[in-house]
Amino acid sequence: MLELRLVQGGLLKKVLESLKDLVNDANFDCSASGFSLQAMDSSHVALVALLLRSEGFEHYRCDRNLSLGMNLNNMAKMLKCAANDDIVTIKADDASDSVTFMFESPNQDKIADFEMKLMDIDSEHLGIPEAEFQAIVRMPSAEFARICKDLSTIGDTVVISVTKEGVKFSTRGDIGTANIVCRQNPSIDKPEEATIIEMEEPVSLTFALRYMNSFTKATPLANQVTISLSADLPVVVEYRVAEMGYIRFYLAPKIEE
């Protein structure tokens, strides 16, 4: 028996909106510690890891570990039927081939339940070691989204370079080139507008903008995004999900042929 009640149901709507274009089908893993997901995109270039800790739910019952295979597009369709301020409850029986999403309005005058068929999904679970990064950039998520969107009108790839001067996003295309430099800005009065760069050593990596733009679908979840870079690792683009967890996108770089 699984029963997860999330007062901030809007968070789950935003999580699904940020996942559904990258991954079609995925297993949600439910355990005593939380509700999580790890899935690769179909080309095995990008990976998303989601964690919503059990403490973040108003009520969290998970009698035994369960893996719920879901089509994320269909799940997103159902969650779109919830209002942003609805309380969302996810329910599933151990042997069931379906999951129920229950939506309650804040004043309890409307209650809806949507049942969705589950799928059997052969998922490939990757071991992701804890890593030390050469550079970690924290910046406003909306700014990062804007940069990725702007650069993708000019080129297909972005070079992200971190030096002690700041973080530089560069692209090149048929019509020309573009460089955007963001300098460190602690913004003590408005921490959500800060750009903080922690650099062990300079690093420069190239990534496909198509994936970066897909990751920025998570922008409504968090004011800040963290971009962790190392020369010998995929980049990690992380958005915090309120106080309860995170959504992390991993993207393998491109190299000169």
Binding site: V45, T206, I255
Partner: peptide, 14 residues
């Protein structure tokens, strides 16, 4: 522009 690396280059399948 350039070759796209795969995640399997970095992460092992569990």
């Amino acid at each position: 522009a350039g070759a796209q690396l795969l995640l399997s280059r970095y992460f092992q399948l569990n």
